[in-house]
Amino acid sequence: MEWTRYIDPLLQGCWVTIELTVYSTILGTLLAFGAGMGKLSHNPLIKALSVTYIEVFRGTSLLVQLFWLYFALPLLGELIGLDLRFHPVTVGVLALGLNIGAYGAEVVRGAVQSVPRTQYEAAKALNFTRTQTLWRIALPQALPEMMPPFGNLAVQNLKDTALVSLISLGDLAFRAEQLRNLTQDSTTIYTMVLFMYFGMALVLAALMGLLERHVGRWRHRRR
């Protein structure tokens, strides 16, 4: 069994998977905060935009979104005279980020709403505006609450990157498929891939754990 021969190409795939995960998680986090807070906004336009975004991306399949952005959007662009062909990496990051952002938005909204009413009253008594109260008082307190579900979403996102192999991106799943076609050594290759995803997920979960401790450092401290 020449499993060592597979290491190099698979590691190259891992690197693409990591890049996709990092970029799309960053994009998703930004979208999650934007849309989550937007859904709590009193501005009807911002609220409607946020709700629409969340429902559309939660309500459709990631695979279809990916194909739509990669295959349908360029054709649509041609019709209206715009070049909407993007690099597969861009499409992958966009689809994954938009998807995880929609789920994350609900996490943000829920956590902010769980901040006790008395905190809002204290903020009002100090004359903070509604927006200041949301961003300065409520959101930072809600952060530790968000971290466990965010951790889940990040790991979910890592695993979802495997879908981008279907738009010919050279991620771990894509490399595995290539090697398997070449060697027919399915058992070895997929076992290795399994462990590689698992290893990356462990590292990601550990990182999220560290982040959770950091944002919650004001909690549970006693004299």
Partner: peptide, 24 residues
């Protein structure tokens, strides 16, 4: 001043006192 203090738990004492004067 509230019965249950309602301090902002995520801020140090100093920031509890400076946040509103600064931003309000």
């Amino acid at each position: 001043v509230f019965q249950h203090f309602n301090l902002f738990p995520h801020m140090t004492v100093l920031r509890n006192l400076t946040e509103a004067p600064r931003y309000v």
